[in-house]
Write a protein that binds this DNA or RNA. Structure first.
Length: 297
RNA sequence: GCGUCGGUGGUAGAGUGGUCAAUUACAACAGACUGUAAAUCUGUCGCCUCCGGGCUACGAAGGUUCGAAUCCUUCCCGACGCA
């Protein structure tokens, strides 16, 4: 299949703290692009310092999409992201600019670049609440009775997945097999990573910078505006451990220590995800030159 | 110097005669992932292995015992107490 006439879309992905935002802005400046964020936490309004959200100044006039599009009190999901990203891409292309997807949320990136078709079953909070009380064993038994095929390939210890599978079953009768229909674009994927030792140092340094920038005040303010601590814990990493600290469940030192190690683990999980995608061209962020990357585009 | 308590795998810390290569937690490493994805979940984690098992291990050296991380003796180290 010849796809050369398809509009080009650049994807900058990789580990947290590898310098994706910065690179994206530079590329956007060079080729007149617009950036679409692919970050599951930066979509939320008010989660700024803790997510390392790019500032107005750092944007250097380059338009950014899909930042601040959701209320942190409510759950935002891949499907919403997918819809918004697809229309953002279309819009940018229509204006003869190049979309640059930039972010570290692999699932979101795959949802739009591979065109994953999700079952038309929105979350059912009521049902989830009921199922939440059951054990994984019970949930697995329910699933097994309703859809053997899905039961056989599901991770039977993963409550979140079990609940979602049952949720789909209640509506569709069975869980559909996964399908994808790639959107009509040519995606060029650039992956950024850092060598282990540099990554660790960068994470530690960045955490201190965030603290100094008032990350804790941000968390306090969000809580003051009605963002519950349990919701903050669910948001993960910075927000999770700040919530624990602000509730006096851990000391400040524990918070910092655990954050450093959790963020590092997260960075590794990101790599595990992206490894599967053979289309990604990888660059060591500590050595790469802008021109080397521009050449591959 | 005397006395007491302790020395366990990368760390913390269980185990106090056999079912112990040693519970568990953390760290480390690998992986999964289809409407929570910064979430959620899984595996490995002394060495070797034809995956049956083999070998070396619980401060050191001896000893008791069919059998010791576990009991005894001496030594080394640490904490506390008395001098």
């Amino acid at each position: 299949m010849v796809k050369n006439n398809q509009p080009k879309i650049i994807v900058i992905l990789g580990q947290t703290s590898a310098g994706k935002s910065d690179l994206s802005v530079k590329i956007a400046k060079k080729i007149s692009g617009e950036i679409i964020s692919a970050d599951s936490r930066q979509v939320y309004k008010g989660l700024d310092i803790g997510t390392g959200k790019i500032t107005k100044k750092e944007m250097r006039g380059v338009p950014h999409h899909l930042l601040d599009v959701a209320n942190p009190k409510k759950k935002f999901t891949v499907v919403e992201y997918q819809k918004l990203a697809i229309s953002a891409m279309a819009d940018i292309v229509k204006r003869n600019k190049t979309p640059i997807i930039c972010g570290g949320t692999g699932f979101y990136i795959d949802a739009v670049t591979k065109g994953i078709i999700f079952p038309e079953v929105p979350p059912n909070l009521k049902l989830r609440k009921v199922l939440e009380k059951k054990s994984v064993k019970e949930l697995f038994q329910i699933l097994k009775k309703l859809d053997l095929r899905r039961a056989n390939n599901i991770d039977k210890n993963n409550k979140v997945r079990l609940i979602r599978a049952i949720e789909i079953l209640k509506v569709l009768g069975k869980v559909p097999v996964v399908k994808t229909t790639p959107p009509p674009y040519k995606f060029i994927k650039i992956g950024l990573y850092l060598p282990e030792d540099l990554l660790k140092k960068k994470i530690e340094k960045r955490l201190l910078v965030r603290i100094r920038a008032g990350m804790l005040n941000e968390a306090k303010r969000l809580h003051g505006q009605g963002l519950s601590y349990s919701r903050m814990e669910e948001l993960g990493l910075e927000y999770r451990f700040m919530a624990l600290y602000l509730q006096n469940k851990i000391t400040k030192q524990e918070m910092l220590k655990r954050l450093n190690s959790e963020i590092y683990k997260y960075a590794k999980r990101q790599i595990t995800w992206f490894k599967r995608d053979k289309d990604i061209k990888w660059f060591d962020s500590s050595k790469m030159k802008l021109n080397d990357i521009i050449k591959t585009l």
